[in-house]
Design a protein around this nucleic acid. Sequence first.
DNA 1: ACCCTCGCATTTTTT
DNA 2: ATGCGAGGGT
Length: 775
Amino acid sequence: MIRPVAQFSEDFDADAGPPPERARAPGRFPYLDGLNPEQRAAVEALDGPVLVLAGAGVGKTRVLTTRIAHLIASGRARAHEILAVTFTNKAAREMRERVSVFTGSHQGMPWLGTFHSIGVKILRMHAELVGLRSNFTILDTDDQLRLMKQVLQAENLDDKRWPARALASLIDGWKNRGLDPAHVSPSESAAFAGGRGAALYAAYQARLKTLNAVDFGDLLLEALRLFRENPDVLELFQRRFRYILVDEYQDTNAVQYLWLRLLAQGRGNVCCVGDDDQSIYGWRGADVDNILRFETDFPGARVIRLERNYRSGGHILGLASGLIAHNRGRLGKTLFTDAPMGEKPTVTGVWDSQEEARVVGEAIEQAQRDGTSLDDIAILVRASFQMREFEERFITMGLPYKVIGGPRFYERAEIRDALAYMRCVAQPDDDLAFERIYNTPKRGLGEATLAILHEFGRRAGVSLMRAAQMLIETEELKARPRQLLRELLKSFDRWHQRSGEIAHEELAQVVLEESGYVDMWKAERTPDAAGRLDNLKELVRSMGEFPDLGAFLEHVSLVMDVESADAGERVSIMTLHAAKGLEFDLVFLPGWEEGLFPHQRSLDDNGRSGLEEERRLAYVGITRARRAAKILHAANRRVRGLWQTSVPSRFIEELPPDHVEIEETASASGFGGYGVSRFDAAGFGSRYETPGSRRAEQWTRREEAGAYGRGGLRPAEPRGLPRPAPSAGFAAGARVFHLKFGPGSVVASDGPKLTIDFDRAGRKLVMESFVTAEP
DNA sequence: ACCCTCGCATTTTTT
DNA sequence: ATGCGAGGGT
């Protein structure tokens, strides 16, 4: 339960009057001057729980940063006593920059960051309390998946029928909801491998612990567990954080909420900023209810609405408001503006996606002639496959564009390989990194050898690298792989030594060259090889921005992306999700068709709440526009290679007519030269008036039949730490049995290494853990 | 051990 | 259409 923190400072109550009359020492807080009354209230309501409902374009970031400045300037807290959490690194960076304008850059904000980065920081301080060492590694999705596969294989599950991906997303969901394996209900556990879901989750967690690793979900879940199980540590942080600020509160999931609530129970000074109408991440665990419940969760909470919009023209605002009004379960906010009505948003029907791209391209050229910068124009799509049509069109037109949110830098194969090398140098026990590069570039080491390393490592409870080190001393491996492995280990030894001598970026250069990795790409004559080499150069360069290898690797695992400063004006193409928080003069919203937007999958999986989230996405899209918004829908679209006819989105019918202009291009309205008759015959001639009942279910739904409820529950086989090899301590003369070499007699022993005369295979040097006493 | 071919799936995405 | 992964063939 939350301790009620109802009393506000008298300071605040005294402020209830109209702001201009307030006679604070004039000029003492100059940053308050430019704020409107609501913004100012949000900045000055420092004590107790506060919910700031900040609609689109109301100056939310300004309020947050000014609030931080005010906390510091008014002497309530010092910078290191303020916890400020965001969701993205970008938001954190932006906030940091803007705060430093007020505070001077010398006073950093050590506790301003993403949920994950703050989680890591706290976990590193108290790692041992959750069964980790403080230098734990953070696995990305790739490592996570490979580990999951290993777990599935160890359990002898058909990875066709029970794909690692599915398990990963299941576990992710559980972690998002704050559930550890013991708390997964049997009915949910039944969703995977006939009830073994929770057991697999437990096995996966055990593997993570032995690797001294966490995945992204753990950064939050373990941070929560830390606080739950260690009240003294919790209290430490409750006292440290005199004030807590949370950005994008509508995007918090259950773990984040629970974690925040624990911290907020201390001082009760928690300020959450968000907009229930912009909650678009339900599919990855965000729970809008968190923001809807705020006043119940934090009794005595003050709610401040920021409704004065500084971004868009009146018609755009009216359009967005009219649309979002169709959602139930809102906290309710009405954006208004003093700006003129401006341009009416348009809805344009086109024949197909090609025409859509063409129409948009032409409109952009027109806007450009009228003086709009390409940087101020964006195309916001529902699904990324829609981007291609625009890209192709823009390339033929010679229109510069950029795709926001494409494959990220640190996710590229060459970057991940290079990072794996560096991880192996920095942390020789990082098995996942070792596996990744152990035969990259191809050095003749295959699955068979890796399996032996795994087997030995598991039995002896050591990492792959250590297992390899031990095994090359023996004859367990065939001569060739043994030699190859020896060379690889020698290289790592050498690099490890040099890591103390030369700068880390220099070391990276050396490693990439000596390992043959650079040569591998040089030898590859594919078109993108050159780009990959460039990326590697960029990687080495960017390492120089960090004090040491460890700091760099930490940054990479948390940030996953690199800032790209590209010159020249460009149109932006991105998904609606990626557009949140951005704004443009001119926004194109293509693909407003049933099945695509709202997306069929969203409807199928989540029904009404799915639909409402889609509608919020539409709301986000429209409110990105400052001057003009242009909605388009195509009658025909190619999906997965085949053409489908489509019906305009129900969202189009929901738009308030006063704020929208309906247009049809010649070809779509049936007057042009394209397949008129077919189009009209299909009944799309007046499709704006088409009743919702006409919406065809043309998007085939995928059935996941048989995935649930199959089989009974099975008790989980406990999978703990790797069992240490039974140390039988074979003395000379003992009779032993080796799986590969058969029976033999021990001649001599040197620690775990045994010299054995095998009855059939002759004298061999093998690891003790590979032999058993002769039956 | 490596390469090639076949089959399958394909919303949204941060950390 | 396309790309990725797995399995089989060389």
